[in-house]
Simulated assay, not measured.
Amino acid sequence: MSSVRTRSGPRAAVTAALAAVLALGGGGCAPVDEPTPTPSGDGGNAAQMLGQLTVAQAGSMRGYSREKFPHWRDTGKNCDVRDTVLKRDGESIKLSGCNVVAGRWESVYDGRAFTDPSDVDIDHMVPLANAWRSGADEWDDAKRGNFANDLEQPQLIAVSATSNRAKGDQDPSQWKPANRSYWCQYAENWVTVKHHWRLTVTTAEKAALTEMLEGCTWASKP
């Protein structure tokens, strides 16, 4: 994995326990409980992180395949990371054994609500193909798997299948959520993931993110 900041306290314990389950598979029959990833909540910090990212042209797609980003990892008996995110991001969740079979999800990308988990996709905030073009092509499959199953950073989110597929592998200069009220959080989460994983941004991508962050109410805070 990329370099990770040292953590301590309860959050570290949760993260360590989750990492062990993801790596080895769990014996439980319920999706792993994982707190919602906590973004900085500070537009100035996101802008600072954006300024630290390396700007580079998008790399080649040569050699890319989704299989090089192994997901979804097991998190229990018949359970995987997808179930974990569905449980974390939904309300009134119902399980059949270990599988999430019902609940309520509101897609922050387009404001649509669902009660059938088959109508919900788990989006990679930074798409796998985009990551490949911005540095992940140089990683091994284990590190790419860690990226594709990252529950600690704001990398995984339950959204409508239609919005996820409309997004595809596009960056914020090419696609933004229809729900404009989510743009600030979207830009912050995108920057947080790219900064943590030391991925590059294109000139157009950086310009779009800068504009999105500048339009946020907290961007001018000291």
Rank of each mutant, 00 (worst) to 15 (best):
D80G: 12
D140N: 14
C98P: 07
R133A: 10
P117C: 08
M125W: 14
V120Q: 03
P117G: 10
S118N: 14
Y109M: 06
N146H: 08
L156C: 10
G145D: 06
W132Y: 08
G97F: 08
T115Y: 03
V100K: 04
L95T: 03
N99P: 00
E91V: 13
S107G: 04
M125N: 15
D150F: 10
A136L: 11
D121W: 03
R144Q: 03
V126R: 05
N149A: 08
D121Y: 05
D140T: 04
D110S: 00
L95A: 02
L95M: 07
G145Y: 10
L151A: 02
G135P: 05
V81D: 08
D150L: 09
A113N: 01
S134H: 14
D150T: 11
S134L: 01
D89F: 06
D141G: 00
H124G: 13
D140G: 14
R144C: 02
F147A: 04
P127I: 13
P117F: 07
D150V: 13
D80S: 11
A131R: 09
H124C: 09
R88W: 12
S118T: 15
H124F: 10
V101I: 15
L156F: 13
V81P: 13
V101A: 01
A131K: 09
L86V: 08
N99F: 02
V85R: 06
Q155V: 11
A131L: 01
A148K: 14
G145A: 15
P117V: 11
R112D: 01
I122E: 01
G111M: 13
D137T: 00
V85I: 15
G90L: 11
Y109T: 05
S92C: 01
S107I: 05
L156M: 09
H124L: 08
D80W: 15
D137N: 09
R82N: 07
S118G: 13
P127Q: 10
D119F: 01
S118E: 14
D140K: 06
N99D: 13
N149G: 05
D123M: 10
L86T: 10
F147L: 08
K87F: 10
K87N: 12
N99S: 14
V100G: 04
E138S: 14
D116F: 06
V81N: 11
I122P: 03
A129N: 02
K87C: 13
L95H: 13
E152H: 12
D140Q: 00
C98T: 13
D116W: 02
S96P: 00
D83A: 12
A136P: 09
K143Q: 14
H124S: 09
K143V: 15
M125G: 02
W139R: 00
A113C: 11
R104Q: 14
D141K: 14
R82E: 01
W132F: 13
V126W: 08
G135T: 03
G90E: 07
Q153W: 11
P154S: 08
P127A: 15
L151S: 00
D123G: 06
R104E: 12
V126I: 15
V101H: 01
